[in-house]
Each structure stands twice: as C-alpha cells, then as structure tokens.
Write a protein that binds this DNA or RNA. Structure first.
Length: 497
RNA sequence: CGCGGGGUGGAGCAGCCCGGUCAGCUCGUGUGGCUCAUAACCACAAGGUCGCAGGUUCAAAUCCUGCCCCCGCAACCA
C-alpha cells in the first residue's frame, strides 16, 4: 500500500555571503527543512541543498578593505550561514559555495553549452567612476545626478556585455508555468509573474568587463570578461548535484521544490528556466514562493532599526520555539507579522499551555494512577487528510494548525471522561482499573500521533514526546516542556506593583 | 487607467473560486466548572451594517459594476 520510495530534491536560495544571515534566510531553511523532514518521514530519499553566493564586487571590495584576498574573506564569512542553518535545525545534505572548484568548472561548461543563446552586446547606463559601477536611472534621479560618495556627476557609459537570450524562451516558459509543468506556488504569484512577462522576457546581461568585475568566474574564451551573478549563482542548483560530470545528478534533477522569497521570483521563474531549457534540462516542478516577515506591520529594515535576529530567537526560546512560530504564524505562502509580544504569547499559550501542559497532565496521571505503565495503547488514528493535503499544497501553516486542533480535542476529551474521577473507583469498582487504563492509553496514543505529525515542524519536541510515551512506561521528563517565559510580555502571576 | 494583494465582532485570521446548511476559528474580556496538569484545562456568554454605493437573484460576506482606503512590487537587498 505504501507509495514507492522516491528520490526527491529541494533547494534554497543561496544568500550573498557578504551580509549577515537574517530572518529571510532562516525562513528559507526552515520551510525547506519542514518539507524535507516530511518527505523523509513518508519514506523518500531527500537531498536538500543550501549554500552561499561568493562572487562579486562587494566581496572583493570588503576583502580589500580588510587587507585579505577575497577567497580568504569568503572562507571566513560562509560559516555564518552554516551556523544559522544548524541553528534552525535544518537537515541540509549539500552545502555549495560558488567558489567551489567543481562549481567553477561546471559553470564554465554551462556557459559553453549555452553559447548558442549567448551574444555580445553592450550595456549603456549611468556610471560612477569612483564606484566603478553602474547605477539605475531611479537611483541617479534620486541623487540628483551626482554621486554623493565621490562628489562627481554620473556619466553615461557604454560597456561590452554578453547577453543570454532569455527572450527566445518566453513562450516555452510561459507555457510551462501555465500548464503547471513548473508550478508557481501560491497561485497569485504565478499570476503576478505571467503578467510581468506578458510582453516577453528581456535578454539578460550575464557578464562584465574584467576591469569592472574582478572577482568572478572567467568567461570561457574571453579573458576580458567575467561572469555576472546570474549564470554563476543560479547554476548552483545543479552543480551541487554534480552536474555535468559527476554521477548521480540525474537521480535528483529536476528539483521537486525550489524555495525562494517573493523578491527573487522573477529570476527563478525567468532567467533560471531559460538556462535550463538552453541546457536541455527539465524545469523544476515547483517554486515555493514565500513572503517576507514584517515587524509590527512595518517592513523590516536596517535603517528603521527593527531588524529581528533569528539567532536571538533561537537562543532565547529554543529551536522548536522558533520553528513553531515561523511555521504556524508566518503563513508559508504570504507575508507574516512578527513581534516579540506575539511570539511570546504564542510560545507561552500554545506551546506551554496547550501542548506542554497536555503532555504533562497525561504523563502525570499515568505515573500517579498506574505507576507509569501505559498498557496496550493502540496508536490513535485520527483522520489527518487535512494535514496531509496542506503539506502537499505547501501550506505548512495549515498543516500545523491541524495538529493544534488535535491538541485541543485531546484536552477536551480528558475533561469529558475525567480520569481523576475514574481513579477514585480504583480498589472499589472492578470496572475502574480497565476503564482508566483504556482512557490513558488512548491519551498517550493520541500524543504519539501528535508527536509524529510534529516531526517535520518540531523535531526536538517530537522526539521528546516519543521518549516519554513510546516505551510503554512513562518516562517523566526532568523539567517541563516549554516553561513560560515573560521577557516581552507581563507575567500575569507577578505580584502587582 | 503600471502590476499584485487586502478591507469580516477589541486584536489576528478562515470562509469568497463552486451563491442558501455562514456568520466560523484563535487570542482578549466576563461568568461558571474542574483539580490530572506549566495559577494550566473545560464550558457558556457578551461583542460584527462581512470597506461604501448600486445591481443580479426567491436568496450575497460569497456573483456583477462603480467608488473609497491600506499594503507590497515596479528588474538585480530573504
């Protein structure tokens, strides 16, 4: 009856290694991890890619500033992302750095293979000599035509660039999106993108003159040109699997899900498919486009100073506290709001009171009334169609909602059957003992099922539940699960001032 | 007329595609119950012109038209 075991592949966007890891990266890792753990639980083999984008001028500049070479600099930097990945408990299998030798070689191979779709053109725009960089019309307009850093006017400059003919793939890509061959989730993002390309895709510039971009992959056959970000960075999704020369990449490509933020949809739904089509490869099956985390209704921004650090959340509330809030209260496919107060309310109320306390009361009754012996607990089998449908539709927040409705039901059940009343009959009423045993066995069975359903979301908690109830004898945990924290919300039990 | 999303009891949301069985859920508030439990849990109650104005229909939060307001994006910062 079991579905056949499959080899699945999920990817995350590779952040620019220059920055510090932020909440958006954490969301990427978390969503991909939830999916990966769910699929593994279903018996599938999953490869889960993460990585860092390590080329470009900003990196070269920063390295120069520090007096080290760029590679040394990125060697220091990429660990920040590795550490965030571990911090949020993401079970990634492959970490790619775009400075990996295999990647460099593979990208050059890809360039050559795409040669029929590459042509040399020129780019014209506003250039600042001081920055050695182009600025957009909008930027130049906002700055009044003068570079504030160098006090010099921007000038029109033309430079040689190679272009990828993404335009010639417009129809193919549009069709793939419309038919769902490459499914964009959620639906409204698909609409948005189709609308965006209604007049066709524009060819994209994929190289820079060496003098303007020193730190990057050399363009094969043209020593004066270096690859600009697109081919280099996007290719990671296949080079990490070993494309083109290492065995096994075919087993995992096309990707089943590629997790991206809404801000980079256009590249992943436009340039990336064009590259794949040019290479004669299949398109990814699904693009999971998540939203952004806003804080108290406002965009998160460094200048506003409302940036929330995922590391701080994990360090304060634990990895499962983090995973819980960001999987349930930040909608998988839309923007979501974070405030420390909301977070703490959810932590205390939903994890502490609803789930934590439920586990505690069941474990405690079994210990108190039956010396910890659970007896024959048949694993409860609630109908979890809604949960699985939600997981399949990549609406993880809805799936975990379902788990909480089970938690609620079990609390209600306990209040209905009143095991403590039944326990009063022990030793008097011969019916009492088996009746009580049956009730408590049901409770622990239900909790085990809840534990299973939580595996993708809160692996640590799932294991904890498992450990308490699985052996047939309750192992009371040392402490309580999810003890209350009152850091950002008032402690209701504190004496009033 | 650039594109997209949204306006539902104090807060946050679901329902809208496939009109009626829809006014639902969580939190908050009030009252009560219970004592196994992390002063937790359970029940009940108060509270809504479903943005505004028209229209279609036996019937509209749900379909159509117009308007108002909020948010995001507008090509290289998840």
């Amino acid at each position: 009856m079991e579905a056949p075991q499959k080899n699945l592949y999920i990817t995350t966007a590779i952040p620019y290694v220059n920055g510090t890891p932020h909440i958006g990266n954490a969301i990427d890792y978390l969503l991909a991890d939830i999916w990966a753990r769910y699929q593994k639980q279903q018996g599938h083999e999953v490869r889960f890619q993460v990585g860092t984008d390590e080329h470009g001028n900003k990196i070269a500049a920063k390295a120069a500033e520090l007096g080290i070479d760029p590679q040394t600099y990125t060697n220091q930097q990429y660990v920040n992302f590795e550490s965030l990945i571990n911090k949020v408990g993401a079970s990634a299998t492959d970490f790619i750095r775009t400075t990996d030798p295999h990647h460099l070689a593979a990208v050059q191979y890809i360039w050559q293979k795409l040669a029929p779709y590459i042509y040399k053109g020129s780019y014209e725009g506003w250039y600042c000599v001081g920055h050695e960089a182009f600025f957009t019309d909008k930027e130049v307009q906002e700055l009044g035509g003068i570079c504030p850093d160098h006090q010099k006017p921007f000038e029109q400059l033309e430079e040689a660039n190679y272009y990828l003919k993404t335009s010639s793939f417009t129809d193919q890509i549009r069709r793939a999106i419309e038919t769902g061959e490459m499914q964009i989730v959620p639906e409204f993002r698909k609409k948005e993108f189709l609308e965006l390309i209604k007049d066709g895709l524009q060819d994209v510039s994929i190289s820079r003159p060496l003098k303007n971009l020193s730190w990057g992959v050399p363009v094969p056959g043209d020593p004066d040109q270096v690859m600009y970000v697109w081919l280099d960075a996007l290719a990671n999704y296949i080079t990490v699997l070993g494309y083109p020369d290492k065995e096994g990449w075919q087993t995992y490509w096309p990707a089943d899900v590629q997790v991206i933020g809404k801000d980079i949809l256009r590249f992943h739904a436009g340039i990336w498919p064009a590259m794949l089509l040019g290479l004669g490869l299949q398109l990814p099956k699904q693009l999971l486009v998540h939203g952004h985390v806003i804080v108290g209704g406002a965009k998160m921004s460094k200048t506003v100073g409302n940036v929330v650090d995922p590391i701080e959340i994990v360090d304060t509330y634990g990895v499962d506290g983090f995973r819980y809030y960001f999987s349930r209260h930040i909608p998988t496919l839309d923007d979501g709001d974070f405030t420390w107060e909301k977070f703490e309310n959810a932590f205390n109320g939903e994890l502490g009171n609803d789930l934590g306390n439920l586990i505690q009361r069941v474990a405690s009754m079994i210990t108190r009334y039956q010396a910890g012996v659970i007896g024959d607990s048949e694993q409860a089998e609630h109908d979890m169609t809604l949960y699985h449908d939600a997981m399949t539709n990549l609406e993880f927040n809805r799936a975990i909602d379902e788990v909480w409705s089970m938690v609620r039901s079990l609390n209600q059940y306990i209040d209905n059957v009143k095991p403590w009343e039944v326990a009063k009959g022990l030793g008097k009423d011969p019916e009492a003992e088996p009746h009580l045993a049956e009730i408590l066995a049901h409770c622990s069975g239900a909790l085990l099922q809840i534990g299973d359903l939580l595996v993708p979301f809160m692996p640590t908690t799932a294991t904890a539940i498992h450990d308490i109830f699985e052996s047939g004898v309750v192992k009371m945990p040392e402490g309580v699960l999810f003890p209350k924290k009152y850091i950002h919300t008032p402690d209701p039990h504190a004496p009033k001032a």
